[in-house]
């Protein structure tokens, strides 16, 4: 599905990615973890083509993505901070994204799932953070692509919506998709993820299942396991 080889990226003097090698073949949910500034978002943006790597290559479904754009049709992406053009209305935004992607979509059920009907004719600037995130989720999940990338999907969500989101994610998984998630909420990761990739200072320090992570660190929860692995590498 995704194959990354020796990926390097530098922002100014700051070496963010230091030779990432990663291969994801099987469908399932992969959590990308790591402390702030470890390169999670850069990695994801590289996959999306928003960040151009200095060295290395990325292929998706066996084709290199360099200087290509059409492969993004096969990605559903949920950006980290839901910043939208302010003077658009929610309905217009959804319509616009549909128009731009020209793919089959199912926005109605998602809108009712998150109870967004009353907000459809509101301008995006007037929405609260949580509502924006719901709109963000609708925009991501209304399409049907084999690769799903979610950057901090839980931020700002109320418990009820969180449950809906989890349901959505597990539905996607059942469809046999590959789902990449970054999150700081370890409980959420433990609940949904099959595999964990741990990034630190631009390099992969762990790549395996949750159980493997726990075994390796002799911890019972992901939270502690991650803390242990962070400390362990610091020493």
């Amino acid at each position: 599905m995704i194959k990354i080889e020796r990926l390097h990226k530098k922002f100014g003097k700051n070496q963010v990615l230091r030779g990432i090698d990663l291969e994801i073949e099987k469908p399932g949910i992969i959590a990308v973890l790591g402390p702030n500034g470890s390169g999670k978002t850069t990695l994801i943006k590289s996959i999306l083509g928003m960040v151009i790597p200095d060295k290395g290559s990325i292929s998706i479904q066996e084709s290199l993505i360099k200087k290509k754009w059409r492969y993004r049709e096969r990605i559903q992406y949920l950006p980290q901070i839901a910043n939208f053009p302010g003077n658009l209305r929610v309905r217009e935004l959804i319509k616009m994204i549909k128009d731009l992607r020209q793919q089959e979509s199912d926005d109605k059920s998602l809108i009712s799932l998150f109870e967004l009907e009353p907000f459809l004719d509101k301008k995006l600037t007037t929405l609260s953070g949580g509502t924006k995130q719901k709109v963000n989720i609708v925009l991501t999940f209304m399409f049907n692509a084999p690769l799903v990338i979610l950057d901090e999907p839980t931020s700002g969500l109320d418990p009820l919506s969180l449950i809906s989101l989890k349901k959505l994610i597990s539905n996607e998984r059942k469809k046999g998709k590959t789902i990449l998630i970054t999150s700081h909420i370890m409980q959420f990761v433990e609940e949904v993820a099959d595999n964990v990739i741990y990034l630190l200072e631009g390099a992969i320090h762990f790549n395996g299942t949750i159980d493997e992570l726990k075994n390796r660190t002799n911890q019972t929860s992901v939270e502690h396991a991650v803390a242990a692995i962070t400390k362990g590498t610091n020493v």
Partner: peptide, 16 residues
């Protein structure tokens, strides 16, 4: 001002 709009578009299947 349209930075957000641009970032939204960049993740879509559209040529830069």
């Amino acid at each position: 001002n349209s930075k957000e709009f641009t970032e939204l578009l960049l993740a879509q299947p559209i040529r830069r």
